[in-house]
C-alpha cells in the first residue's frame, strides 16, 4: 500500500471504532506503529530508495505517522470519555431516599444553655466553682443570713436528710464555700442542681441554678446591672433591656428582681411575656454585709454582688418549652428537637 492508501485505510478503521473498542484501538496502533507495523515497514524501506528521494519520502512517512498518532490519541481520549460516560449512566441512584449510617447525639437543651451562660461568664473573668448538692444547714441558710427559725426559710421548702444536713435549696451555698477558700478579688459562677419540696405544674423538685458572685473593692449596684445587662444581651440578643425591681433576699441588700425585655415581642406584649413586655429572669443584689463578715471579708473594704439564675427557666423561655416536666421525661422525640 502506498501512503495514501495507508492513510485512507487507517482513517476508515479509526472511524469504525466505537465506544467499547479500546482494545481495537490498541491493535490498530500496533498495526500502524508497532515493530512490524506498516509505517515502521515503510520507514525501514527508505534505505532502498535513491538518496535524492530519501528526504522527501522520509518526510512524507513521518508526517503521516505524526498525523495518525495524533488521531489515535484523540480517539483514545474520546473512547475513554465515552467509557466513563457509560459508567456514570449506569450509576443512577434514587436520590429521594435516605440511608442514614451515623447518628448525631443530642446534648440536653439545659446543658446547651448552661454551656452558653458559662461561656459568657468565663469570658468575663469568672471561674466556675462546684459546690456540694447535699449541704449543711450552715452553708445553705445560716451563713447566708437565714438563722434557724427565720421566716425567710418559708421562702424555700427544704428536703432534709437530718436536722443539720439537707439538699441545697439554692446554689448560693457555693458563695460561702468560695469566700471561705479564696481571698478577693473574686468572680465566680456556681452552676448546679438545687432541690425544693415542691411539685406542681410549674415547679419540679429538682431544678438548676447558676449562682454568680463578684467581690472586690468599689463594686457597685450599677456594676451588677452592667454584668446582667451583658449577659442578657448575649443570651437574648443585642436589643435586650433589663430592669430592676426591689425585692428581698436575706443574703443581699439591696436586693432586686431582674426582668429582661421580651426577646419575642421586644416589649409590645405577647404570649411569651404574658403581655407585660418583660420576662422575670432572676434575683440579685449587693452581698449583705453580714454574709461578707461571716466569711472573714471586711465589708467596709469590700463590696460584692451576687445573682442566681434559674437555668431551667431560661431554657424553657429560649426553647419555648411550656412544661417543666418535659425537661425530665427524656423522651427521644423531645431530645432530638435540640440537635
Amino acid at each position: 500500500m502506498n501512503l495514501k492508501e495507508i492513510r485512507a485505510d487507517a482513517l476508515k478503521k479509526l472511524e469504525e471504532l466505537h465506544a467499547k473498542s479500546e482494545r481495537d484501538l490498541a491493535a490498530l496502533k500496533t498495526y500502524l506503529f508497532g515493530k512490524s507495523g506498516v509505517l515502521t515497514g515503510l520507514m525501514k524501506g527508505l534505505k532502498d530508495l535513491p538518496p535524492e528521494q530519501k528526504p522527501q519520502a522520509g518526510k512524507e512517512i513521518n508526517d503521516l505517522r505524526v498525523e495518525l498518532q495524533g488521531l489515535c490519541e484523540q480517539k483514545e481520549q474520546e473512547l475513554h470519555r465515552l467509557a466513563i460516560e457509560q459508567a456514570i449512566n449506569s450509576q443512577v441512584l434514587d436520590l429521594s431516599i435516605d440511608k442514614p449510617d451515623h447518628a448525631i447525639g443530642c446534648v440536653h437543651p439545659l446543658t446547651q444553655v448552661r454551656r452558653r451562660l458559662t461561656e459568657y461568664f468565663v469570658g468575663n473573668g469568672y471561674i466556675v466553682y462546684d459546690s456540694p448538692e447535699i449541704e449543711t444547714d450552715y452553708y445553705n441558710f445560716q451563713a447566708l443570713n437565714v438563722p434557724p427559725d427565720h421566716p425567710a426559710r418559708d421562702m424555700q421548702d427544704t428536703f432534709f436528710i437530718n436536722d443539720n444536713i439537707l439538699l441545697r435549696t439554692q446554689t448560693s451555698a457555693g458563695q460561702i464555700r468560695l469566700m471561705e477558700k479564696f481571698k478577693p478579688p473574686l468572680k465566680m459562677i456556681c452552676p448546679g442542681r438545687v432541690f425544693r419540696n415542691d411539685d406542681d405544674s410549674t415547679h419540679s423538685p429538682v431544678f438548676h441554678q447558676m449562682e454568680g458572685l463578684v467581690i472586690d473593692k468599689n463594686v457597685t449596684l450599677c456594676d451588677l446591672k452592667g454584668a446582667l445587662d451583658g449577659f442578657a444581651k448575649f443570651i437574648f440578643g443585642e436589643q435586650t433591656q433589663i430592669r430592676f425591681r426591689p425585692s428581698y433576699f436575706p443574703f443581699t441588700e439591696p436586693s432586686v428582681e431582674v426582668d429582661v425585655s421580651c426577646f419575642n415581642c421586644h416589649g409590645s406584649g405577647c404570649r411569651v411575656c404574658k403581655n407585660t413586655g418583660w420576662i422575670e429572669l432572676l434575683g440579685a443584689g449587693m452581698v449583705n454585709r453580714k454574709v461578707l463578715a461571716g466569711c472573714g471579708i471586711d465589708p467596709d473594704e469590700y463590696h460584692g454582688f451576687a445573682f442566681g439564675i434559674g437555668l431551667d427557666r431560661i431554657t424553657m423561655v429560649l426553647c419555648a418549652i411550656n412544661d417543666i416536666k418535659l425537661m425530665w421525661e427524656n423522651d427521644v422525640r423531645f431530645l432530638h428537637m435540640f440537635k
Binding site: T118, G125, N218, C222, D229
Partner: peptide
Amino acid sequence: YDKIISTHSENTHQTRGYLSTHD
C-alpha cells in the same frame, strides 16, 4: 431603680476566668 445605670466594673480588678479541669 430605673436610675441605676449599667457599668462594667471599671473600678475593679481584672480576673482570669476558666473552667475547672473537672468541668
